[in-house]
């Protein structure tokens, strides 16, 4: 799921692309994709930030795997931040990302 740029590069590979511009359409598209036969849903990072609640709800199921990918405006480090938080939760301290990021 992403804007027209993402659609242009991913569609030729045969991925099922939902071209969405803003939050409301994105939520519907995500629900549709998660309910369908998709094992893996890529969401452009900037859209994903707005969809955090829906994504969190869908993550309780084992599939589909939902992944945030950097959009045309580059990475915002959302996914990296999420991993850092999880390390902190699991280990009890931030042991890997100290200093950088």
């Amino acid at each position: 799921m992403g804007g027209p740029e993402a659609a242009a590069v991913f569609r030729p590979l045969g991925l099922d692309v939902a071209e969405v511009e803003d939050g409301s359409g994105a939520e519907q598209a995500l629900e549709r994709m998660a309910g369908g036969e998709h094992a893996l849903v890529f969401i452009e990072e900037e859209l994903g930030i707005g969809l955090a609640d829906t994504i969190a709800r869908l993550k309780r199921r084992p599939l589909p795997v939902i992944s945030l990918v950097p959009g045309v405006r580059g990475s915002r480090g959302t996914a990296r931040e999420a991993i850092r938080k999880m390390v902190e939760r699991a280990v009890g301290a931030d042991i890997l990302f100290k200093g950088d990021s």
Binding site: A8, V9, F10, P12, L13, L40, F42, K59, V65, I66, S67, V69, A79, A82, I83, M86
Partner: peptide, 23 residues
């Protein structure tokens, strides 16, 4: 552009899998 995306695709899938596993 399409070729680069194609090249990134495999890593994208692996990344999605690894991030889910981490979670």
């Amino acid at each position: 552009a399409v070729r680069e995306t194609h090249a990134a695709f495999r890593s994208l899938v692996k990344l999605a899998e690894a991030e889910r596993a981490v979670e």
